[in-house]
Design a binder for these strands. Sequence first.
DNA 1: CAGAGTTATATGCATTTGCAAATATCTTTT
DNA 2: AAAAGATATTTGCAAATGCATATAACTCTG
Lengths: 156, 156
Amino acid sequence: MSDQGRRPTRLGETGLEGFAPYLMNRIMGRYNAEVRAALGQNGLSTPKMRALAVLSVVPAPLIRELAVYAVTEQSTLSRALDQLEAEGLVRREADASDSRATRIHITAAGLAVFEGLWPHMIDAQDTMFRDISDDERQAFLGTLQKMLRNIRKHEF
Amino acid sequence: MSDQGRRPTRLGETGLEGFAPYLMNRIMGRYNAEVRAALGQNGLSTPKMRALAVLSVVPAPLIRELAVYAVTEQSTLSRALDQLEAEGLVRREADASDSRATRIHITAAGLAVFEGLWPHMIDAQDTMFRDISDDERQAFLGTLQKMLRNIRKHEF
DNA sequence: CAGAGTTATATGCATTTGCAAATATCTTTT
DNA sequence: AAAAGATATTTGCAAATGCATATAACTCTG
């Protein structure tokens, strides 16, 4: 049993630091800022970086899929892709069976840019987890995965 | 020991779902969207809501402090406060000992608005944690608190 | 198979954002 | 105690954002 019969907590009772979404926003705020600092040089923005990151792992998604994976509004992503394409980092390619749809392919150059970025993301992550044991970290990750399943509205 | 001697993971090895910052961004994306949906009515924006949330718990912070707590750029916050003040939800008050500084006070009306919002935040949180045990949830929160200490650049 | 509804992407436009600079006030140094 | 440097906040402005809509193509229903 979890919450049964408990009255809703007031924010004041636990304080900000007892409210998980607050902590997560706060932590991600710093993580994203950290990564963004590494982006500036390459002329990348957060949406562009996120698109590249997903594309380095997910092959040829539709734009709407990419938008979900990359946690980016579709219209924002559309424009980010314009730029990435102009820079030769991705390629738009018409879907074979649905001519409304476009699949996005990352280019070798795009992959190279992402690989230059990845170490910064790892660093930022390692900073977050500094002095947290592998076991605790693993458990944390497990909970995150359950949470994603809970909130997810798509099959991916 | 944690990572000693392990070579840096490539994103492809674990996939997106093995990378904690990705999961956290994805989850918070949904949580924030959920909350934002509840805001629309009241003419609130995310920064305005965050300011109110913090102010409901932290008494009379400086603007720069509020910006950190609320995970909002200072210039964005400055303008959010303009609006909140115009709507009578907060009050700017000159700091007693430093006349550059301004302290923000939430008004009764501001508090009332926040209390109307809070249930939605609780709901969104409960959705995230659906079917996660109290113990696991507690452990998760503990890890988040450690992480905040790791990445924090201020004393709060 | 025509028409109604749906889905994929792009775009127009008003608003919001964030950076950098401006302003005002401290604080430290010499 | 004046100058140089820091700090708190606001604001100008170009760029990014998100909503609603446009366009095009698909799917289903009768």
